[in-house]
Design a protein around this nucleic acid. Structure first.
Lengths: 140, 140
DNA sequence: CTAGCACCTCTAGTCACTAGAGTGATGTAG
DNA sequence: CTACATCACTCTAGTGACTAGAGGTGCTAG
């Protein structure tokens, strides 16, 4: 029986060793069997679960959402309405974040294009930050 | 002499009371004079500094960058090269973040459009997360 | 005076990790 | 077998920018 150590699991799943321990500590992973030397022995199914978690994290789902998604995966007869809801909520968040970052980008561009004159007293960056009439929230 | 309390400062600057205390604790704000009852008494210049900080935070500058920007503002004869650098670095970050969020958006949209069929066993969200060949990093 | 709200300090928590100290286990070369 | 390098273990605390709450004091309007 070839045991899969935590280092193996990390390399195969792309999730770091301490992060794997962290996920175990918060219950996303079931604690695996241990060797005589007290080392973790993972199964291939554990690795699949790790990759699922990693993929979900990359998409920006938070730990609680992932917990829910994993529960759904463990029971394929459940309604997938909540998976649907979780993904849609995340999509809306991402769209919103893109919008606000795009607005930020505009402000930063305006700020930067007037900069580089040499002295703070004529510095567009400092000027804009100090000028409350240009506060982002006023624009909204 | 009309004293400006921390609550006044919070309302005028848009920065929360505990956050103002936090900024004082990390040195972004000079501790103001106190009343006989030990309450903070702010000056209008303190409020201007708070608004500067708030505006910079809204633009996503981190605390250390803001510290630098404030130092520059306090000495208008300094070269503004570092303000320029800070703003440009932030602009690049924002552009990058927009790009990665846009890619995420695409993946989420693909995921969501195949969902809503009722059961987890046919759930596109779960399917995609469980399918490592669709891991975002593989696409890159 | 009293009640209610604002103020104070201090401690710890949030979220998702990350780092490091101190120790033990394992594998391999000599 | 021994030494050494690397990997594993647990535990504690830190990261960044806040945020929350406990327990107490100050202030003001009625």
């Amino acid at each position: 029986m070839k045991k899969i150590t935590i280092g193996d699991a990390a390399r195969k799943s792309g999730v770091k060793v301490p992060t794997i321990r962290y996920y175990e500590s918060i219950g996303l992973l079931v604690p695996p069997d241990r060797s005589e030397g007290n080392q973790r022995c993972y199964e291939p199914s554990d690795l699949r679960r790790l990759s699922f978690i990693r993929h979900a994290r990359e998409l920006g789902f938070d730990i609680d959402a992932i917990r829910t998604l994993l529960t759904l995966q463990d029971d394929p007869h459940q309604s997938c309405a909540s998976a649907d809801g979780i993904a849609k909520a995340r999509l809306i968040e991402v769209e919103q974040r893109i919008r606000s970052l795009t607005a930020l980008k505009g402000e930063l561009e305006l700020m930067v294009e007037g900069c580089g004159h040499g002295r703070v007293e004529q510095c567009r960056v400092i000027e804009v930050l100090a000028d409350h009439s240009q506060c982002a929230h006023v624009h909204h």
